[in-house]
Design a protein around this nucleic acid. Sequence first.
DNA 1: CCACAAGAATGAACGACGTTCAATAATAAA
DNA 2: TTTATTATTGAACGTCGTTCATTCTTGTGG
Lengths: 197, 197
Amino acid sequence: MRNNREERREGLRERLLAVTTARIESQGLSQLKARDITAEAGCALGALYTAFGDMDELVMRVNTATLIRMRELIAPVKGETPVARLQAQARAYIAFAMEHPRLWAALFEFQLSPERALPDWMQAEQEALMGLIAGPLAQVFPALPPEDLLIRVRIFFGAVQGAVQLALQDRFIAVPRARLDAEITALVEALCRGFAS
Amino acid sequence: MRNNREERREGLRERLLAVTTARIESQGLSQLKARDITAEAGCALGALYTAFGDMDELVMRVNTATLIRMRELIAPVKGETPVARLQAQARAYIAFAMEHPRLWAALFEFQLSPERALPDWMQAEQEALMGLIAGPLAQVFPALPPEDLLIRVRIFFGAVQGAVQLALQDRFIAVPRARLDAEITALVEALCRGFAS
DNA sequence: CCACAAGAATGAACGACGTTCAATAATAAA
DNA sequence: TTTATTATTGAACGTCGTTCATTCTTGTGG
């Protein structure tokens, strides 16, 4: 049975992914150890390397799954206007970040070795997430050529992401949820109104 | 001679700081090793721990020095209006980030263990850097109460920082320097005009 | 049902890392 | 010069990710 083999292999992969996701969510990326993961998953240390190339790949699989979860949350968000839609999307982003702070933090705490290439499947998901705001942004800036829109999307996404990150992980100035929502909503409004279309 | 002792001790500290700074700048934070640093500084491995508590403290000293360098570059920047000044400050920030990309990246790549407190001297320098934009921002938003201004400063700083970071470290969409300057200048303009004062 | 080849799982071993500390060397005091 | 104090040293330690010879399991042909 070829089937049986691949099923077992896939089962191990899924168990490892689930355990790793749970451990990142409960203790953070920095506390992640291969020995803890395999012990909790009920397999040998070396088994991890039969399912994934290395720890980096495992973490990137978890992060990609996180990006997918975020995309599935943000994609259906609607709005009466393109701007209202972008604002609602930003609030959905905040909601996820506050609900799963360590999973969300792992997205940027993880640093791939500089010489290694980002896997296609992760790059694709990053672009898919950014693609969610490309549509509304194209409506807000109808005169912008496609290649300029790519840059604008990144500036926009980076601005929202950076503001949320600084607000949420600042240890000294606690920003209440409602206040953060209001600030980021205003931020999106400002970006849409203020940029040259 | 008490003097002689402290001088030697301080000399070692400065040599280690200089070597660490140079190594971060040339190879990045991820390639930093205690053995390399002490070998290049001409001291024993253990000597590092007579000068600094651990590697984290050494890196935070370098990062704090980087924050100081940035502040010294940004502080004298003037502008005809508060908004123009903020824009010029943002461009100075970009200039530093592009001139010293790995030193700049080390500022957010470094992650202090969650249970450890950020040292006062680093927190103070972070606040000093943010304080540079508090003045102009207070002029732009004169009606904002002081405690709300603290939050606004963080949203503002985070947005610029996030946009620059995503633009500079994106491996697929290269944003030319002139274009980044223009985008961030527009971003600052939009933030100042768009937010409720 | 058995024997056997192919593949998967195992965990001891490896090398690299940050950190520690008993031993040594250097320095100031007597 | 002798002695007490302090600074420096680098071997050793514990922990980590990763590898790989060995063992066990599984699917197949007689």
